[in-house]
Design a protein around this nucleic acid. Sequence first.
DNA 1: CGTGTCGTTGAAATACTTCAATAAATGTGG
DNA 2: CCACATTTATTGAAGTATTTCAACGACACG
Lengths: 272, 272
Amino acid sequence: MLATHSLEKPMKTDVRSCGTRADIAFGAEVSRLSAATCLHTLAQIEATRLEAILQRLGPEAVRLEPGERLFAEGDEQHDLHVVRSGVLKTRRIGVQGEELVLDFHFAGELLGRGFLSGRPQRCEAVALTAADVCRFPMPALEEAMSESVELQRSILDRIGRAIARDQDHAVLLGRPLAQARLAGFLHELQRCQQGRGESPVRIQLPMGRADIASYLGLVIETVSRAFTRLQEEQVLKVSGRRVQVLDSKRLCELSGEGAPACGATSVMRRRA
Amino acid sequence: MLATHSLEKPMKTDVRSCGTRADIAFGAEVSRLSAATCLHTLAQIEATRLEAILQRLGPEAVRLEPGERLFAEGDEQHDLHVVRSGVLKTRRIGVQGEELVLDFHFAGELLGRGFLSGRPQRCEAVALTAADVCRFPMPALEEAMSESVELQRSILDRIGRAIARDQDHAVLLGRPLAQARLAGFLHELQRCQQGRGESPVRIQLPMGRADIASYLGLVIETVSRAFTRLQEEQVLKVSGRRVQVLDSKRLCELSGEGAPACGATSVMRRRA
DNA sequence: CGTGTCGTTGAAATACTTCAATAAATGTGG
DNA sequence: CCACATTTATTGAAGTATTTCAACGACACG
């Protein structure tokens, strides 16, 4: 019931505008990446040579509007996708039609992971904002990886980082306090933005509360309350999807630098 | 505080004996895999040819006793590990020294995932039972993957499955009811055993309650109570680490085939 | 046979979920 | 440009589950 009603609709209302005013362009037009930048990491491989390899692969540029699907559960297509601009989410649809958000994908990140095995996709990818995605056909990529150890290493490295993110997600979900989960989520978002050279203090959330709730294993009301309390504690300034981090250190502490399954006594007391 | 006290000790008491009697050999001696079987999947590649490739890699056989570490957080060694027999867990150690169990690894499964990137390991691997692990040096493997598309595909496929498991883990952690998480965990364990050709009804848990609790994002008492209630509902028969699945269908239902973030009304009512 | 670890059980405190209502924001149409 | 309808987000109150604190029982080990 969470999101079944908005599976297909483009949902234009979703992302474009966030604050009534102070509406800065987010994601869509900022930091568009070249095909080569999409796959290389840490200058392990010379961009020129990589570009040549990638061109031969015939990468397909995909343009998505908010709400559009890149691929669906059960798809047999196993290409490698890399986000060039915008934000997407991957999710599973539960037996009762409920949404289960697995991850959010920003510019430069791998998508889907379904390309790794020959099995059908177990999740679907939906654009949260307008987005550009680079699609590399898997068979060609497979061949290219054989020829270029650098490319192979580069892709494995990216996969490794995606796995690390998944594990961070699991760690986050393991925390008992909603505040800790939200704090960890925002902190990760901060690092994420910083990594792309954007401001780490102003966060423009590309996803709604429902997406955050699902990602954090909470209900929407709890997320809302956690936002409010984080604001009351002077850690954040929240205004819809516009979030300003006032105290990054505290945010990090709250995210779980505290105790493993406690926090109650030390953290909760600060509520009033 | 969860497990800092048992980080290094071999902890002989941990696994070897579970039921006072009825003590069957678990994991250690059962289903030991050949070096070739370690890496091939679905007969995509002829075992003979693969065996030749793998031999050239100079795989190292590692023998672990319960409680021994295969690698630690921060290690710079990036080899690929495959479990040949026994069970291991990967975990992170939180800033306060608390344990965070990320996954359990059974025979045939990849380990660590740290080999993918050049960065230091972010988690450590510890043997739960006596275990045999196959270690493939990464540089050689990298080269071999370039030469053999089958090997490359095989490894990517395994990575893909490991990622799918991580996602299942996240989905599990997203469930609000302890019963649902435990049920899902046991159900997964069932499928896991079945996949290795073992009995799906009798489960011999290689890990303690603390490991399960950490993996499920719960405290140990809650796990214990969940076991008890699952037993009261005639779904399981529990005796320490020996679990018998009486109603596999119910177990699956309880695991989350129910509602996304509800279950309370429909599931909890059955408590009495 | 005591000691230590592991697992279970009980009672109180706390946090989350649920249900319900309200407020804010977006988009549409007049 | 404003009013209306829809979606999204916030807030309140009650119910329920988990955590916490504490004690007990079971089982290996020395």
